[in-house]
Write a protein that binds this DNA or RNA. Structure first.
Length: 280
DNA sequence: TTTAATGTTCATGA
DNA sequence: TTCATGAACATTAA
């Protein structure tokens, strides 16, 4: 579910729903979700009486700023947050709820993740930037921060398939399997093109499409968001704007050639063999 | 029964 | 050391 636009939607939702609330008690039902050297009990105790100051985002990571800590939360493939005001807190825990935050006002925030791939970790407030530097995260995909020169340098360094490079979050953050296919289609670049073979003009187009696709998807609330909100699940509107992802066998919107699906770096990849030729 | 699914991190080998 | 590839994590649905 979550690439950058979806994570941004979750961030905004959390700021709206839990900002200012104070955590009374944390319950962890699947300890692997928590990345810590402490026991789960001790870890949960660190969160008691912490106030949720502000939620921010870096790439696909959520940063939940607390009074004395930053809680980094990554949704991976299927993580989501559900929020219940006091009167609607469920008595039965849902099947895939792995972490619950009970607030002092009686409301509850819960972490829901069918595949249990998501992770949470508590770090010092001063170590937030260090955490991301350690992972070598690239710039945010925005006009001001995403410099063409740095992007070019980064792509010229590797012979890996461009799709693989864009997915690893080191040249630029935010793209996942859906948006990367969209961006490459709109840039008329074959996903298996070796990154160092791209022309300067292709790199320029790619950068512009990355910024534009992610910006538009963010404005529309993402593609498949189902987050917070007790039962009131809302789907992002960008779903309907997808031009290539999930359209295997259907006619390319540019030339009617059937969309093909292949594997690139182990990931399902949709592209038009005519509009996105290999070589040049 | 087999395969693939919106992501990252770790192990292995070149 | 660095880079590239593939497995692991765990569950569901087609």
């Amino acid at each position: 579910m979550p690439e950058l636009p979806e994570v941004e939607a979750v961030k905004q939702g959390l700021n709206q729903l839990v900002q200012g609330k104070v955590i009374q008690q944390v319950t962890v039902d699947w300890p692997n979700i928590i990345d810590t050297t402490l026991s789960i009990e001790e870890w949960g105790r660190l969160l008691q009486n912490e106030r949720i100051e502000k939620v921010e985002r870096r790439g696909k990571y959520l940063i939940i700023y607390l009074t004395h800590w930053a809680l980094i939360s990554h949704l991976r493939m299927e993580g989501k947050y559900n929020f219940y005001p006091k009167a609607q807190v469920p008595h039965q825990k849902g099947k895939h709820i792995h972490v619950r935050f009970l607030m002092t006002d009686g409301s509850q925030l819960e972490y829901d993740d069918v595949r249990k791939f998501g992770r949470m970790t508590l770090i010092d407030l001063q170590k937030v930037s260090h955490y991301f530097e350690e992972r070598k995260l690239g710039p945010e995909p925005m006009e001001e921060q995403f410099a063409l020169a740095d992007f070019t340098t980064s792509l010229k360094k590797t012979k890996r398939a461009i799709k693989t490079v864009l997915l690893d979050q080191k040249s630029v953050v935010g793209l996942g399997n859906i948006y990367v296919d969209e961006v490459l289609f709109r840039s008329h670049i074959h996903p298996e093109t070796k990154a160092d073979q791209l022309t300067l003009s292709q790199i320029e187009t790619l950068r512009e499409q990355i910024i534009q696709v992610l910006q538009e998807a963010t404005a529309k609330g993402g593609s498949t968001i189902r987050t917070y909100k007790n039962s009131l699940d809302e789907s992002g509107q960008y779903q309907e704007e997808l031009q290539i992802y999930g359209r295997t066998g259907e006619p390319c919107l540019g030339c009617q050639t059937p969309v093909e699906k292949i594997k690139v770096g182990g990931r399902g990849t949709h592209y038009c063999p005519k509009c996105q030729p290999l070589n040049t």
